[in-house]
């Protein structure tokens, strides 16, 4: 590492005047400035625009000149007789995905750590990352290769074993499994990288001393790796809880081919909003729906964070 000349003015470290803590805090504060400015400009200022959720927004009058209409724009979402199903599906699939992805990704990361040869690690990681590059639209095309009634691979397998062809796109029950499977498939490589990175960051001395104490592989995983991954797992899950009301649109729209027969399983808030407002160009209703998703997410994450704080304050988000 090259020597740093950046902070010349701080060289006489024990200067009196500012107390050390205040100055240090100030320095830390200075570091945050570019990031804070970006968030203010690109997140917080536009956030004010979310008020159109409560307005009868007319572009020519501008956001502030448009009339207030209270909660009118929320009506379409809550007046839908599917609201219960939508909320259930969204939350259910998200919970499943949080647990499943964490489980599979941690397993991959821990196993990857057991692989000796770097070349294998590299190969596995590269392959596991591939789904990240395939957009859901294309995954939808691939899905038809699997599920197509006539030419699909699955039905060919079924036929091979003498079964009767299944109409995959018309039979909801299978999709309780298909949806999570595709969800995990798409994200496991990506998420496992975070866990793998955490394992890489563990001080090797800890493992070495455990080995001296005679720990075997499983013992090291159980007593060192997994406990050290715990905060990471908790933080990752906590962050996901905030989007509990948001679904990965592409997964629920393109993979099931937007087949109406499957809606009892695959219809989530995001697909419903898209479907109902398509063509209407209705910005206010979609803003209202988004706000609802955000508020629920906020409540959920603050609650969970408070609980985590009680038991394990260092894994809390804020």
């Amino acid at each position: 590492m090259a020597k740093t000349n950046l902070t010349v003015q701080n060289k006489p470290a024990k200067k009196k005047g500012l107390s050390l803590n205040a100055r240090k805090s100030l320095q830390l504060g200075v570091l945050t400035i570019p990031g804070v400015i970006w968030f203010l400009v690109f997140s917080y200022i536009p956030m004010a625009g979310a008020v159109i959720a409560f307005k009868d927004y007319k572009p020519k009058r501008g956001i502030w000149g448009s009339e207030w209409v209270g909660f009118d724009n929320f009506e379409f979402l809550f007046s839908s007789n599917d609201a219960g199903r939508l909320v259930f599906n969204t939350v259910f699939h998200n919970f499943i995905s949080i647990f499943l992805v964490a489980f599979v990704a941690v397993a991959i990361a821990v196993f990857m750590d057991l692989v000796d040869k770097r070349i294998y690690v590299k190969t596995y990681q590269t392959m596991l990352f591939l789904p990240r590059f395939i957009s859901w639209v294309v995954v939808g095309f691939i899905g038809t290769i699997l599920f197509h009634y006539e030419h699909g691979i699955l039905n060919q397998v079924v036929a091979f074993f003498g079964g009767e062809a299944v109409s995959w796109y018309l039979t909801p029950k299978y999709w309780w499994f298909i949806i999570p499977a595709f969800g995990v498939w798409k994200t496991m490589g990506y998420t496992s990288l975070v866990y793998y990175g955490t394992i890489m960051g563990i001080d090797t001395q800890i493992f070495e001393s455990a080995e001296i104490d005679g720990a075997n592989t499983w013992g090291k995983i159980r007593h060192i790796t997994l406990p050290l991954l715990r905060p990471t797992i908790i933080i990752m899950s906590l962050m996901s809880v905030g989007s509990i009301m948001r679904a990965d649109f592409g997964l629920f729209y393109y993979v099931p081919n937007n087949s109406g027969s499957l809606y009892s399983v695959t219809d989530v808030l995001d697909t419903y909003i898209f479907r109902a407002l398509r063509g209407a160009g209705d910005m206010t209703s979609s803003a209202a729906a988004g706000l609802f998703q955000s508020v629920v997410g906020l409540i959920m994450v603050v609650t969970c964070n408070t609980i985590v704080k009680k038991f394990e304050s260092e894994s809390a988000l804020f």
Partner: peptide
């Protein structure tokens, strides 16, 4: 009838297979 149109559109699409 904005709200009703949105909700009906969603229902009709759901029953496209019907």
């Amino acid at each position: 009838i904005k709200v009703e149109v949105a909700n009906c559109r969603a229902v009709v699409e759901e029953y496209a297979d019907l």
